[in-house]
Nucleic acid binder design. Structure first.
Length: 303
RNA sequence: GCGUCGGUGGUAGAGUGGUCAAUUACAACAGACUGUAAAUCUGUCGCCUUCGGGCUACGAAGGUUCAAAUCCUUCCCGACGCA
């Protein structure tokens, strides 16, 4: 029996220093980095997403950055396909794939072996459904797929719409718990974490720094290239609040405040997500001793 | 100094005699998550509780009333107007 390919995952909240750490590790173990970030996949979204620069990459290959057009919705399923292909290639080259990012859903899509139904987003259907109340949506879903209706969050229109989309295409889908999962990889998960107060401070400083570097201009450019305000809203955080500022809906000051708070909320959501996985090895990236011990664990894991 | 309006929970801001521990929003905290995931959604949110309830609260002190955040008096503070 051939053993499963080994991959390293580096995850953590925004602003914890994942990219740096990943590059450092990649150097040590001849790794290549696959970004797991739902916004860094888009071209032209750099400062706003905190995308790593060429210089910061220090010659370590990075993948799944700038692979999508921000005008189009890129989905987990797209991500999964691309990532799996990249993993294969990296292993073929004899290198170690390092998945690094803060989008927990994307990371899980790869490592948990979950299968997404072959039902692409149906724009027309969504446009119709979005007008309905959540009660109506729930009724429709219940008719189409009783199983899914049992477990779904009835208050969440986004989920309801997607579930209906799937149900309409495939009929009743087996309960998730009953679907076997095939885990293709052997995974070591390292989570970077910092104390709340420190993280808050770093988030704030980073916002100011990026504004200085031209983050507002970046959003303006995206708009000039045809990204609608509506799409910016969907993209969230910097794109959402800076575009509101550019439209004159917010003052610069309240934009910064809002962005700061919302980024913190985002970081908390990330924490909630990552906390569930008990296998993750947690690490304070500012602690040299901890880094050393994690480095050793990684090397042992790869043996 | 006189006059007017106002002082409500971490903040903004409703309530103007009982149904008020006090609408709502924000913040704070916790959580969900199977093709939008930086999105979307949920819960808690004065203190104590054996979860029945108990206690302290709407600037302060008195008063009216069976009952006051709500009415009256005085005081303190703020904004505006007149001097």
């Amino acid at each position: 029996m051939k053993s499963k390919p080994k991959i390293i995952v580096i995850l953590g909240q925004t602003s914890t220093g994942k990219s740096d750490f990943a590059v450092q590790m990649a150097k040590e173990i001849s790794g290549e980095i696959i970004s797991a970030d739902s916004r860094q996949v888009y071209k032209g979204m750099d400062l706003g997403t905190g995308k790593i620069t060429k210089k910061e990459m220090r010659c370590v290959p990075h993948h799944l950055l700038d692979v999508a057009n921000p005008k189009k919705v890129f989905t987990v399923s797209d991500y999964k396909k691309l990532a799996e292909k990249k993993i294969k290639e990296i292993i073929k080259r004899g290198n170690v794939p390092i998945i690094c990012g803060g989008t927990g859903f994307y990371i899980d899509a790869i490592i948990s072996g979950q299968v997404f139904p072959e039902v692409p987003p149906n724009k027309k259907l969504r446009e119709q459904l979005i007008k309905k109340s959540k009660e109506e949506l729930y009724k429709i879903l219940k008719k189409l797929d009783k199983n899914r209706a049992e477990t779904i969050d009835q208050n969440n229109p986004v989920r309801l719409i997607r579930a209906i989309e799937i149900a309409q295409a495939l009929g009743t889908v087996p309960k998730l718990a009953d679907v076997g999962r095939l885990q293709k990889y052997e995974v070591l998960k390292i989570g970077l974490t910092l104390p709340d107060e420190l993280l808050k401070e770093r988030i704030y400083k980073r916002i100011l720094l990026r504004i200085k570097k031209g983050m507002i201009k970046e959003v303006e450019n995206l708009y000039k290239k045809g990204l609608s305000w509506k799409r910016m809203e969907e993209l969230g955080l910097e794109y959402r609040y800076i575009s509101q500022y550019l439209q004159g809906k917010l003052t610069k000051e309240t934009m910064i405040d809002k962005l700061n708070i919302e980024t913190w909320h985002y970081a908390k959501r990330q924490k909630t997500w990552f906390k569930r996985d008990k296998e993750t090895i947690w690490l304070n990236p500012l602690n040299k001793n901890e880094i050393k011990s994690v480095e050793k664990k990684i090397k042992d894991f790869l043996k």
